[in-house]
Write a protein that binds this DNA or RNA. Structure first.
Lengths: 191, 191
DNA sequence: AAATCCACTTGCCATAAGACAAGAAACTAC
DNA sequence: GTAGTTTCTTGTCTTATGGCAAGTGGATTT
């Protein structure tokens, strides 16, 4: 099944709605290092990732960039809050590898979003899913140790470990690349 | 204006709807130390806080309890995800002081929630507001230092500093009570 | 009033984590 | 090929943070 069919599966979207929406999409390519969205911009679109890896990040109070999330294949690169509340983004979204994505042009998106009732609902569902995931992550940052979080990431999203430099994974886990390197050494020793 | 009128202000709730909803509420008292919701329970109701202070917390991987949030007067003590998704809570909600709250009995809530269209919308608005706040907090935990976060809390929610023991505020800020004590000392020295 | 309990501060010490830097290995470019 | 990046590891050293414990001051109880 295509990326888009997968992403637009929703009880309130009929196959015809889905087709209408899918047909409004156009292919977009990003080169490694390209920005999909920058801090202070208002998100006007989102991207369905078919191939590649994207990371979101912010700068901490010491100027280090801290990874806040990864978006892999068959996932959506979307700043839910910026897009649906029309407020400036607080994060940067940058391609870690060359990427192939699909996106709806702003105009079509706005028309469809307001005319197809289920599309609206689909947006709300994304909002609620985002809340769920963010909460989970917040809790896991507290209740799990860095090495546990690493092991979880390794088992649930192995492709990230393959495609992302260590330093970005480290900051995602809340530690430095040095510490992560030592955690990995420790894990090898254990097995 | 009463707590309830304040909380149920919403463009899609007519004054009559609001009255219907408000009349379904009953007063609930909590003693200091009482639990409003415990981990692994599915939230069946939420509480409109008229007087007192509530805190939510989880246990970290070393067994320390970590404050995840405070709920003050005129605010809602609600686990949005547990309530609307009907899944077990991950946090504990506990009264830090004696509290006076309002709550709808489960039955009435379910009936009104599904029959008053705007009530439904009100629930969604809370979901989206929760996402916004959680994101803000996540970002501030990264982009601000502990002492900056303390200063922000002090200026935005001074009543929390009055009503909560230092150790709970400290864990909310991501540090120990010892460290917070030193930060406060430093801030006094500065001024 | 004495005895407890908590909340908070503060000093001392231990330690986990980060800063820094060097070096190996892989990859890219010319 | 060689030079230049970038990634990752690893050693040493430093430091911020936490653990522990003592001590003060308030509040509460008996």
């Amino acid at each position: 099944m295509s990326v888009l069919k997968r992403i637009y599966q929703h009880p309130l979207l009929s196959p015809e709605d889905v087709n209408t929406i899918i047909n409004a999409h156009e292919k977009v390519h990003f080169k490694k290092g390209d920005y999909l969205l920058k801090k202070d911009q208002i998100a006007k679109k989102y991207f369905c990732v078919e191939k590649g890896l994207i990371r979101s990040y912010v700068y901490d109070y010491e100027g280090n960039d801290i990874t806040t999330g990864f978006v892999g294949e068959n996932e959506l690169a979307i700043d839910v809050i910026s897009l649906f509340h029309e407020i400036p983004a607080v994060e940067y979204f940058q391609a870690l590898t060359d990427c192939e994505c699909y996106s709806i042009p702003l105009n079509d998106f706005q028309i469809l979003y307001h005319s197809i009732k289920g599309f609206n609902e689909w947006g709300r569902a994304w909002m609620s899913g985002s809340l769920f995931e963010l909460k989970q992550r917040t809790i896991s940052m507290i209740t799990e140790s860095a090495s546990e979080r690493y092991k979880t990431l390794r088992s649930k999203h192995p492709q990230i470990l393959q495609q992302s430099p260590l330093k970005y994974i480290a900051s995602y886990l809340g530690i430095t690349d040095t510490s992560l390197s030592r955690i990995r050494k420790e894990l090898v020793r254990e097995s």
